[in-house]
Design a protein around this nucleic acid. Sequence first.
DNA 1: CGAGCATGGTGAC
DNA 2: TCACCCTGCTCGA
Length: 268
Amino acid sequence: MPEGHTLHRLAGELNSSFAGRRVRVSSPQGRFAASAAELDDSTMIIAAAHGKQLFCDFDDDRILHIHLGLIGSLDLGPPVPVRGEVRVRLATPSVVADLRGPQLCAVRTPEEVAAVVATLGPDPLRADADPDLAWIRLRRSGRPIAALLMDQSVLSGVGNVYRAEVLFRNRIDPHRTGKQLTRRSWRAIWDDLVELMPIGVRDGRIDTVRPEHMPEAMGRPPRVDDHGGEVYVYRRAGQSCFVCGSRIRTEVLAGRNLFWCGRCQRRG
DNA sequence: CGAGCATGGTGAC
DNA sequence: TCACCCTGCTCGA
């Protein structure tokens, strides 16, 4: 589930339900028991995301730092009995938030959080982001753009779905290197992410298909896939490109499954 | 029931 | 580049 949009959405949900309130903190699974006891019954000030990192500020300068990783989840809802491996449960009388399978969950100091944030590239979902910081890294790199987009120290928040989709939408071959990218192309990618990712935050899913290519407009059936919205190439290997009809290709790049259209997306 | 898979990342070689 | 970590779900024996 978790690319940057998921974490920003969760930060908003946490703020609605917990900010300014006393929070019960527990670790039903036990692996976070000591830290949970330390935070229990204190006040959550505010939650915020930076890229895929989620930070919940509690009083006394204690910050709960969460990274969901590939399989982690944080589910908010009405109080229900604990089910499965719940690493951390945040609770008020009316709401619980259950954290399962996070890659990282720890209590940090403000200095430690600042150090983490300092390692991250600009986040398209943050108003304070400066795309030129990413461009400085990109422009001299011999690595493929599909790898650079996933590198959280270059820019933060983009994952495997957004990298594939933003490259398709901008007709850029994933193998083009940073050096082969023009500043103009980079700005097009960035501006597109700034447009797309807030939609993901709003809807809680990734939709990237433009109106003229939507199923209704094209006379094609809606995408049958339970894990996402309407996308052009992600997990569509072997199927027809919605724009040109050629077969969507796939390969492993930077350790992850990459999808692209060899005809629509150009090398140079 | 086990194997394989997943929108991520780390550490060892 | 690879093994491995975290959890839950699906699929095939």
